[in-house]
Amino acid sequence: MSSKLRILVPVKRVIDFAIKPRINKAQTGVETKGVKFSINPFCDIALEESIRIKEKDPNSVEKIHAVSIGSAKAKDVLRVALAKGADSSTLIDVGDQEVEPLQVAKMLKQVVEKENSNLVILGKQAIDDDSNQTGQMLAGLLNWPQATNASKVVIEGDSVSVTREVDGGADTLKAQLPMIITTDLRLNEPRYASLPNIMKAKKKPLETLKSSDLGVEIESRLETLKVEEPPARSAGIKVETVDQLVEKLKELKAI
């Protein structure tokens, strides 16, 4: 007997992908004051996939629950998720503290158990820390199957088949629910939230918890000693003709 899907979608609030981050003066991190933040693009894709699963077969999905871990400002990305089609949401308010993927995964495990989720769809990586870890860690903690870098997801009852982008091409895995899927860029094209839906989202449930409510103590295993600019490339030259280009490449011993 196939069970209904209770999808959990973790979403992260990150500096907008189009903005070039600046290192702060103390070299401890990236300047966040006055910078535009948005939903992490891969989380947006995860959310879109969940909504499409529900739209395709509304009876198969019991709920889509969005969760974010961060400061109170992360409510914004949860409202976006609700406006796009999530049914309910949880903010785990950790203030301005940065939380490493291991602790995020531990908190998500608690949320999975609380929401009785049987499918978690996450972005493959957050574009700020670029870790690409949380989904796999959550799968490890829950001992669930994992399919990373999904470019296609097909659900038939309790059986989920996922085509993944891997080095050199693609492969397809099959697993039974419950499972963890992380999304690649090519899985889908996320929708925009319409104004009426943004208004309606304000009435949808958004519960706020503390990490202590979940019994997870936030500790950093990695100490960031320094954050610095990558070495700048020295200015190049522009040439006028292909001949000059070839000549220059010979000069640089590149050919």
Binding site: P21, D130, T224, L225, K226, E228, P230
Partner: peptide, 12 residues
């Protein structure tokens, strides 16, 4: 981190 726009030195 940040698409290679910053380099973080971390101690485990």
């Amino acid at each position: 981190i940040y698409a290679g726009n910053a380099l973080a030195t971390v101690k485990s």
